[in-house]
Design a protein around this nucleic acid. Structure first.
Lengths: 233, 233
DNA sequence: TAGTGGTCTAGACCACCGG
DNA sequence: CGGTGGTCTAGACCACTAT
């Protein structure tokens, strides 16, 4: 009588995960072929494949055709961040969202901006400064550049009403997004805008997006003192 | 004559992605059932499933049994961060890694620490302070608490030689990991340890891990001025 | 409780890439 | 070029949950 074990891919994943963490396989070691694991556990190869996909997603193993599956040589903590539209973020925290356009001007990209896009030749862009509010108090300062070659439609958007943040997220898909996080001290302008003190430590998030290699926008968002960014999970 | 299209799941994914971004389906709208999409595109349902899994991973759609697939009502920018072992991070940047144990002491968890673990009753923990170095210069300050109930073996580790950071990542799997990022101003102690000036803006990363609901460790890593955290992609 | 996504299987072929 | 992971298919059953 054949007993058909119906193993879930999560069981298979945890089994392999455990074998790695127990020291059976160390960083860089090669694991058995999917087919062999499937035989051993008496399940379909695609179940092992699904388990391995997950382990690969979390950065525990690396997989290559012909090269097989290896334990990731440098263990990492992989985390997922969800960065919402600022309006939603404010509303979720129970605040009443407000928005002020501070400045909007067509101009040529500065060297810093070109560098963010990994470009060298000059590009015409729309520079935008805006302030997001929560209950009429400053919440986040936005310093944005939008590439007019890639997104000419931005000219027709009334940015006094709808933030570029929101319009872009809803209307411009991107194929690449680079983020960087760091801390800065508030200078006089920032402290005035955000209602902070000069020298306050502020979290700055820099985000650049492309669509098929063409630059869309790069933006620095500066949050008020005490702001925390949390992982989603 | 039947033409057997062999559509890749990426093609299906991009097709759906495009339909969403073109405005055909807006935030909150319900998409057709997987089976109907499969019929329409003439592919297997599992191919659609694979495509949808990807769209769900990046936060574009939400899927529920019986409820169907809906466009995510609040668009988000989802990013993945890889936080390596500090030694690897230093070495990858070309620095020579160094490490100093500053303090190690068994004590009861403070209220702040308990809060990080969402606990209320007192717990015995190992408190560790350490400094990571790059080319003999301060690189990162680590302020860690390890739960002795969950990880008693930490007592037997010589933390003067191997950092708790490294030992834990290599030896203690976790099932949950919470991260938070924020900016702080360097106080006198930090500035001395990190070779910074008092008031410098520093990026602080707070990480707490659990295994099956049991707390493992919570750590604050404070980096030197100018440190930037980048997305992996 | 019925509808929908989630998973598993067995088999086939493909694509990449290490030796 | 051959070995390994990646993908696709058709079909079946399961698990969750909206109605």
């Amino acid at each position: 009588m054949k007993i058909t074990n119906r193993l879930s891919w999560k069981y298979v994943r945890d089994e392999i995960h455990h074998e790695i963490l127990s020291g059976r396989y160390g960083p860089g070691d090669r694991l058995p072929r999917d087919a062999d694991i499937a035989d051993q556990l008496n399940c379909a190869r695609s179940t092992v494949q699904r388990a391995m996909q997950d382990l690969s997603d979390i950065g525990l193993v690396e997989r290559r055709r012909k090269g097989g599956t290896r334990v990731h040589p440098e263990p990492v903590t992989r985390a997922t961040l969800d960065i919402p539209i600022t309006r939603h973020e404010v509303e979720k925290k129970g605040g009443r969202y407000g928005y002020q356009l501070i400045m909007q001007e067509e101009m040529s990209a500065t060297r810093t901006v070109l560098a963010a896009f990994e470009l060298t030749s000059p590009v015409s862009m729309l520079r935008i400064e805006a302030l997001h509010l929560s209950d009429n108090r400053p919440y986040m300062l936005e310093d944005r550049w939008v590439c007019l070659d890639t997104v000419p439609e931005i000219r027709d958007v009334d940015l006094k009403i709808q933030s570029a943040n929101e319009w872009l997220v809803l209307n411009r898909p991107y194929s690449r997004c680079d983020l960087r996080f760091y801390a800065i001290s508030a200078d006089q302008k920032m402290s005035e805008m955000l209602g902070a003190k000069i020298g306050d430590a502020l979290l700055l998030i820099e985000r650049s997006t492309w669509i098929d290699g063409a630059p869309i926008t790069t933006v620095k968002t500066i949050t008020t003192p005490g702001y925390q960014l949390l992982t989603s999970s």
